[in-house]
Write a protein that binds this DNA or RNA. Structure first.
Lengths: 163, 163
DNA sequence: GATTTATAATTGCAAATGCATATTATTCTG
DNA sequence: CAGAATAATATGCATTTGCAATTATAAATC
């Protein structure tokens, strides 16, 4: 088989440009667009609840994994550490979270979510769930599951931490 | 078959919470994590080129679709219009883009990318391509293609504009 | 065709952000 | 175990951001 007639899929050039790939075939672009809309959809409800994106993300992560050190929470929540530090100031003054000293390492502050924090997130959750449902409307469950599986692989490929 | 023992997958409650789904099964969370890393990976190179995220995104979109009105560019680039307006000030003063009056509607300013703008994006592109390749390392081409197809469906589901 | 309404882009301003640094605590090295 | 290197968090400061208001133009309505 001497196939010289179909070079399209055989890495024909050293580095195809974005213009050649096209925005709508470039996964990072699509993910950015999607997350931009998702975050915009939550914005109004968040504002009414006195939340910003960093505050919301901190609460969301803590609702799943409580008592995290700030530095780990920053990774999970995808927020700069200094930004998170200040977001936690606000959350703490609103009694949404607690700052607890780590008993083994006194450099570490572990963040705990309070009942009030959970209650606030519960009020936001229907909006998040609605936006999530809208994303996958008309997409078969099997396809959604495969999509999530690929997302997990991609995250594993590029993340810097083990979580 | 009276199966009362496995309610886990039979939508047992009206609205499962994030804690029940788990962060690593929640697609928006995974996409946020992934895009956070992707953007962080580009940051250093961008800084060296004098670019911010809004400036980079504007150039990237314009490299594919030139001469867009600012309001459309804002949607494509996923940047607030006022932020984009100021990003374009900087790009224009660096001769990366041009502001051209629309001949049919004098409210509209169309943005054109210059050779210098393309050149700057060309210098960033290898970093973008490397990060992109890293994402899909070890993932079969067929799976990547299916993933992009689902992304396109999701975007179509939630976008507010027709593009 | 004058008046109201809608759209595109810019700008003022307060708040949020991120980088670099400071502070405190821990671990490593010789 | 003293001193240096590393780590976790907080903070000072300049820049960036986003909302709201402004300006300018176009479209719709009466």
């Amino acid at each position: 088989m001497n196939d010289t007639r179909k070079p399209e899929t055989e890495k024909p050039e050293p580095l195809p440009r974005l213009g050649e790939i096209g925005l709508s075939n470039y996964a990072p672009y699509l993910m950015n667009r999607i997350m931009g809309r998702y975050n915009a959809d939550l914005r109004q409800e968040m504002t009414e609840l006195g939340l910003t994106t960093p505050k919301m993300r901190a609460l969301a992560v803590l609702s799943v994994i409580d008592a995290l050190p700030i530095s780990e929470l920053a990774v999970y929540a995808v927020v700069e550490q200094s930004t998170l530090s200040r977001a936690l100031d606000q959350l703490a003054s609103d009694n949404m979270v607690r700052r607890d000293a780590d008993p083994n390492d006194s450099r570490v502050t572990r963040i705990g979510i309070t009942d009030a924090g959970r209650a606030t997130l519960d009020r936001l959750w229907p909006t998040m769930a609605r936006s999530y449902a809208q994303m996958f409307k008309g997409i078969p469950e099997e396809e959604r599951q495969a999509f999530v599986t690929t997302l997990q692989k991609v995250l594993k490929n590029i993340r810097k931490h083990d979580f």
